[in-house]
Amino acid sequence: MGIRSIENNTVAKRIILGALEKEKLSYSIILKGTISDTYFMAIQIAKALNCNSPELDSCDMCDSCIKIERNVHPDVIVEEPEGSFIKISQIRRLIEIAPLRPMIGKKRVFIIKEADSMNEEAANSFLKTLEEPSSYSHFLLLTKNPEKILPTIRSRCLQIEIFSEKDSFIEKFVKKGFPERNAYFFSTLFENDFEMALSYDMERILQRREIVFKIIKNIMDREYLNAMDSLLSEIKIGKNVTRAEWNEDIDIFLKIILTFMQDFIKLKVGDKNAIANSEFLEKMEELKERLELEALIRIIERIEFLRASLERNVNQSLFPYILFIELKEGLNVKGSN
């Protein structure tokens, strides 16, 4: 069975096949889902990358596909925890062979099961490999809990949700009558939790997304007063709002910012197949050259830190100013036109 033959996971198939067609499949991918579902998809990706047929997808009949299916292909390597953790000795083995040419196939594919179980030493070592990817190798990180993976690793990976159930978030979203063009944004924002998405005012979130992009552009154009005014308007303390409600509201606002930062990273590395804010694609393309990849990664790390600080009762009055400083430092690395 090739990728096209999988009945569900429409979005995942579109992203993967689109990237394969352009020969731009990310060298590092997080597959989120159950162990069995993500491993099944990882094997299909490995076959497609190494299939001997001229087709885009795997044929399931050539020697390469058969070897991968039987888990005897020397260029498809599967790692899983030894005990409770994936240890640095395991990662070092991968690092040693990742830069080498494949033995018999077209690509080396490293499938790491339960990737969130890497201990700190292993994760830091693995990060160095992602910073200097080899054109011969692809890493597929399988996990049910991508949030437990080191943020600096996550920021360098394309994340794809693999569903067990028939209807994915996107399909449910469209069936409810919502426009498909917004589906991937909401699935990213709510981490494919459709019921949670329904509990929010989606129109209001789309309005806030417009405001977030305006803030980003204002900062990049050094229109700081306009950016600050927008932040103060969005991050305000209401008299009839509890602390928990304020935290939840600000967390959504920060997550919207994260979707843009993640999109900019994808555009910087040439990946247009999984853009959450696709309606802003043309405008983001214009801005991306003024941004540094490392600065974007730092912004993501700082935003994640600010999200965590909400639980520690961060000062509400100071919060918009703190957020402004973090965005300003990251978004003006190359200056502005």
Rank of each mutant, 00 (worst) to 15 (best):
165 E>Q: 12
58 S>V: 01
213 F>T: 04
237 I>H: 07
59 C>R: 13
172 K>W: 03
281 L>I: 09
117 S>Q: 06
160 I>N: 05
119 N>K: 11
3 I>F: 08
55 E>M: 14
272 K>F: 14
158 L>T: 11
152 T>E: 09
278 S>Q: 13
308 A>M: 14
108 R>I: 00
207 Q>E: 15
6 I>F: 02
238 G>V: 05
180 E>G: 03
144 K>H: 12
293 L>Q: 02
146 P>H: 03
80 E>I: 03
208 R>A: 02
50 N>T: 06
76 V>M: 07
32 K>C: 13
267 L>M: 07
71 N>L: 14
207 Q>K: 15
4 R>N: 15
72 V>S: 09
57 D>F: 11
164 S>A: 05
109 V>S: 10
217 K>C: 11
40 F>T: 10
282 E>A: 12
61 M>A: 14
19 A>I: 08
200 Y>T: 00
282 E>W: 00
37 D>R: 11
117 S>K: 15
67 K>Y: 09
266 K>F: 10
119 N>M: 04
320 P>I: 10
233 S>I: 00
179 P>C: 05
282 E>D: 14
108 R>F: 04
130 L>A: 00
164 S>M: 01
16 I>C: 06
159 Q>Y: 04
250 I>S: 02
56 L>R: 15
216 I>Q: 06
123 A>Y: 13
15 I>F: 07
307 R>N: 12
104 I>V: 13
116 D>M: 01
309 S>R: 15
260 F>S: 09
287 L>I: 13
303 I>W: 04
334 K>T: 09
44 Q>S: 10
337 N>Y: 13
31 L>G: 04
52 N>E: 14
150 L>C: 06
215 I>C: 03
9 N>L: 06
316 Q>K: 15
184 Y>R: 12
141 L>R: 10
282 E>H: 10
323 L>M: 05
95 I>K: 12
5 S>C: 13
224 Y>I: 05
225 L>S: 07
31 L>H: 10
64 S>G: 10
66 I>L: 14
140 L>P: 11
177 G>L: 03
319 F>Y: 12
91 I>Y: 01
326 E>D: 15
92 R>P: 05
273 N>I: 02
303 I>P: 13
133 P>E: 01
178 F>C: 01
144 K>E: 14
24 K>E: 00
39 Y>D: 08
169 F>G: 01
42 A>Y: 08
276 A>E: 04
62 C>L: 12
114 E>P: 01
310 L>K: 13
144 K>A: 14
192 N>S: 04
199 S>T: 04
75 D>L: 05
112 I>A: 02
307 R>Y: 08
221 D>Y: 14
155 S>Y: 12
204 R>C: 04
123 A>M: 08
253 F>V: 00
79 E>S: 04
284 M>L: 14
261 M>G: 07
23 E>W: 04
219 I>A: 03
289 E>Q: 13
125 S>D: 09
154 R>I: 15
2 G>N: 15
152 T>L: 05
264 F>P: 03
142 L>M: 03
81 P>M: 05
278 S>F: 11
137 S>D: 01
159 Q>T: 14
92 R>V: 01
197 A>N: 00
106 K>E: 11
228 M>S: 02
211 I>S: 04
117 S>W: 01
149 I>Y: 12
277 N>S: 00
337 N>S: 13
244 A>I: 06
110 F>P: 08
251 D>C: 07
324 F>V: 02
191 E>S: 08
94 L>A: 07
126 F>M: 10
63 D>R: 13
269 V>R: 03
223 E>F: 06
185 F>T: 05
323 L>V: 02
